[in-house]
Design a protein around this nucleic acid. Structure first.
Length: 171
RNA sequence: CCAGACGGCUGGACGGCCGCUCUUCGCCUGCCAUUCGUGCGCGGGCGGAGGGAGGAAAGUCCGGGCUCCACGGAAGCACGGUGCCGGGUAACGCCCGGCGGGGGUAACCCUAGGGAAAGUGCCACAGAAAGCAAACCGCCCAGCGGGCGCCGGAGACGGCGAGACGGGGUAAGGGUGAAAGGGUGCGGUAAGAGCGCACCGCGCCCCUGGCAACAGGGGUGGCACGGCAAACCCCACCGGGAGCAAGACCAUAUAGGGACGGCACGCCGAGCCUUUCGAGGUUCGGCAGGUGGGCUUCCGCACCGCCGUCCGGGUCGGUCGCGCGAGGCGUUCGGCAACGAACGUCCCAGAGGAAUGGCCGUCCACCGCCUUAACCGGCGGAGACAGAACCCGGCUUACAGGCCGUCUGGCGCU
């Protein structure tokens, strides 16, 4: 069902920054890291996987989200606003476009504060799409089309109407 | 109306869709317990209702509460802070009202403002001289010595004059400086000088007013006692340290384990073990001893080897602390005021990689441009500073715009 969870530990942020993949757009920087040896086999996840799999018993593991805004962006008010806009955008995009079992870390930039919201959504969609593609020359592209598509169906159980309305507005 | 001074308030409004967090209610549901009725038991989902950033939440500069450090009491030292007087306050370095000094036509503003005859130190540059009384240029020879000229005298010598050699007098003037041993004026004098006098300043004494800081008046002294204490210092008063990552509980685990080095390893009593009957080991109790605030001493207390270095192991989860408070608002009374008292009324954020929002629309007020005699209208821009992190009282700093009140000066009108 691809619910959204949060990263709460500094370790997890450092892991995503150190071993994850990264994509940069004008509005934000996205880092993604598979938490478990899920469908595509290779993993950096490590020891958390066992407990995750054992507890998830048939359900899909959640997507976890973390947002980082450094002091370079501005004072506390500006940083909070950047964080909130990124969080709102992530709630719109990630449940559909993100892959289950991944940790995503969004890093705010100085441009995030004044970037139009529609552009911010586009940035995030592009970044997620790029990171979901396989590494060039890497193996195992078999299930990527199938995986997210199958997950998209149960994810729209609760708030299915609203994002569907917003999507044509920016296109 | 213009210019200005002071004080206070405010910190966009409304709506739509979608969220976050806390409290509470209802329904459904899982676990646990059960005396099978249920449960102030632990959780999950859905829905309803209600609360949800600031005047500075900021800087973390003072003062407290609270918590731990077993640090509790007394004295002294050290260190740090404060510094006119009176009041307010839980307290303050804060606030209010006065006083002194400075600025402004005024409203008003600024002010680290105790002590310099307790001691030490400093006073750059300039200047002769920077603290002790001296004298570079200058002014003056009244009095002393010598020389010169003139006059008198027989002479010794005397008188007068100029000068400034010795030697003195002086501090008015010049010049330096932030500051040069009171200032201005008159008298006075060889020249001058508080040398004398008047006024001002200053010191001391007295009187009056004031709780006081201080102010006013009178007398007196004849000027001594230069400045700097945001130099050391002295005096008075205040202050133990660290901070919610404080700290407490639960879970896991440790409950403190090991090695090395240094310093202490003393006495008495009792029990147990060993014994070659000399004693040894160990436990408990007491004394001594040691350790424990920035330091010392004393009293009290706690702990029992103490200190240092290294190695090994564990934890970083949850709950509480954590929102009834020096609390907000209103009225009355006391007070010039800060503030206090009484009564009534209200409950007002509690996150934890950190909630209090995201997107959109209309209006509002601002700025610029176009248009208009002006209003109107159109377009564009931008909506200050800034986000609770244990909580209060202050200070400081940042701040678009708007509103209100009091007062001062000027101009005009009645």
């Amino acid at each position: 069902m691809a619910t959204l969870d949060r990263l709460t530990k500094r370790r997890e942020y450092l892991r995503a920054a150190g071993s994850g993949r990264k994509w940069v757009t004008p509005g934000l920087v996205l880092q993604a890291l598979p938490r478990c040896p899920t469908a595509d086999g290779q993993s950096v996840g490590g020891e958390h996987c066992e407990e995750l799999q054992s507890e998830s018993d048939g359900q899909e593991p959640p997507i976890r989200l973390g947002i980082t805004v450094s002091r370079k962006v501005g004072n506390a008010v500006k940083r909070n606003r950047v964080r909130r806009r990124l969080r709102a955008a992530a709630k719109e995009v990630l449940p559909q476009a993100g892959r289950a079992g991944f940790d995503y870390v969004i890093i705010g930039r100085q441009g995030t504060l004044l970037r139009p919201y529609a552009d911010l959504l586009a940035d995030l969609r592009q970044a997620v799409g790029k990171l979901n593609e396989p590494k060039r020359g890497s193996e195992g592209s078999d299930d990527r089309r199938g995986g997210p598509a199958s997950r998209r169906k149960p994810a729209s159980r609760r708030k299915t109407g609203q994002p569907a309305q917003n999507r044509p507005s920016h296109a």
